[in-house]
Structure formats: structure tokens, C-alpha cells
Design a protein around this nucleic acid. Structure first.
Length: 206
DNA sequence: CGGGAGATGGGCT
DNA sequence: GCCCATCTCCCGA
């Protein structure tokens, strides 16, 4: 079942980040379908300086502030990579959840091909399945999530990108989730806003 | 396996 | 001009 508009509204950002663990992210692309279980997330709040939205509404952050929760926020980083977020909290807030890692499920061959094609190396390096989507940039390459997906409604039945519940509403308990600090930031680095499934081998790093 | 450097371009001051 | 919610390659152990 595709997650509904109400699901994204139900929790504040940090709780949504935990509730998204175990859900399936799906992309129906012209090349074929790819999907993966969300195993690692981070919450970003408009009240803390690590968030893009901390500076207020700009061309880039407009999606986060003006999108209803459940809208996709995709940004371009380090000149080469996209990162995928889910707008969260209530409409008008600048909170979002970064999706950091997936356990690949459908279209694994297609994901590998996209990753290999993206790499400049002449040598065909073998990409092991547990590293196919083990990072926010990697999963966007593997799933082919590009800036064209910025601002789309993940809860709309029309969208080609969405998140589904595959566990009949069952969610991970706090003791099954590791809560720690976020990766790759310098500001507000001490806040415990990164979440991953304990013992999971598909996360970006331990 | 771990560390360090380089790639590469948009956003913001 | 500097920063950046990253990744890959290549080196040494």
C-alpha cells in the first residue's frame, strides 16, 4: 500500500524518520522498476543550522517549506550527486527526512548497471549488493532519482516514485533502532538525528 | 581494510 | 569565492 498523505502528517519529522524504516521506496522508471527497503534515515529541522531550510525560503528550499508533508525534496550536492528527502512535519515547516540507505529488492541488475555506468573507471568493479544503495548519493544513482523528482507528491497515485508499507502497519520498536549523530555535517553535528535498523548490513556505515 | 585526495557544479554571501 | 546532508580511486599496511 502506497503511504497516504495522512501518514506523512501523522508524526513530527524525527518520529517520521524512524517510522520510514522498513518501508519500501519504489521507482517505476521507463527502464524498469527498482525498489528497496529504507534502512537508514536522518531528520533535518528548520530550527537547526545543518538543515538547508535554516536560512529560510530560497529557490532551493521552497519545496521544503511549501510542499505538503510527503512531497519529495531532491537536491544536487558536490557537483555530482543527488540526495532524496521526504518533506515532513506540517505544511509551512522546513523539516525534512533524508533517506540514506536501502536494502535493494527489485531491479537489482538495473541498479548495478546504473551504478557501473556512473563510475568513470574503465575496470568493471563488482558492486556488492550491500553497497548498492548504502548512501544517499548511491541510492539516487541506483534508483535513478534526479532533480526532476524534486517537488513531486509521493502520496499521489499518479507519481512514478512512492513509498509503500510492506509490513501491514507494523513499525520498528525503539530498541530495534540505533539513534546516533548525522553524517557529513559540521553544524549541529552533536544532535542525535540519524536512525538505522540495528544490525542491518545495508546501512552507509556503522 | 582504512585514509586521503580529487572530481565537479550549484547555492549563497 | 567558499562551502557543501558524497563518492570513488589509489595507495599503503
Amino acid at each position: 500500500m502506497r503511504l497516504t498523505k495522512d501518514f506523512y502528517l501523522k508524526y513530527p519529522s524525527t518520529q517520521l524518520a524512524k517510522s520510514l524504516l522498513g518501508k519500501l521506496l519504489v521507482h517505476d522508471s521507463p527502464d524498469g522498476r527498482t525498489s528497496g527497503i529504507i534502512v537508514e534515515t536522518e531528520s533535518y529541522l528548520d530550527s537547526e543550522p545543518a538543515a538547508h531550510s535554516y536560512v529560510g525560503i530560497t529557490d532551493r528550499t521552497r519545496t521544503i517549506y511549501e510542499g505538503h508533508p510527503g512531497t519529495s525534496y531532491v537536491y544536487f550536492i558536490y557537483g555530482m550527486y543527488s540526495c532524496f528527502n521526504v518533506v515532513s512535519n506540517h505544511e509551512g515547516s522546513g523539516d525534512a527526512v533524508l533517506i540514506r540507505a536501502l536494502e535493494p529488492i527489485e531491479g537489482i541488475k538495473l541498479m548495478s548497471e546504473r551504478r557501473l555506468k556512473y563510475s568513470k573507471s574503465k575496470k568493471d568493479r563488482i558492486i556488492s549488493i550491500d553497497r548498492l544503495c548504502s548512501g544517499p548519493g548511491k541510492l539516487c544513482v541506483a534508483m535513478d532519482i534526479t532533480k526532476e523528482y524534486n517537488g513531486i507528491k509521493l502520496y499521489s497515485s499518479e507519481s512514478k516514485l512512492w513509498i509503500e508499507d510492506i509490513k501491514d502497519g507494523k513499525e520498528y520498536l525503539d530498541e530495534e533502532i540505533v539513534t546516533t549523530t548525522r553524517v557529513g555535517i559540521t553544524k549541529a553535528a552533536e544532535l542525535p538525528l540519524r536512525f538505522y535498523i540495528k544490525g542491518n548490513k545495508y546501512i552507509s556505515k556503522s
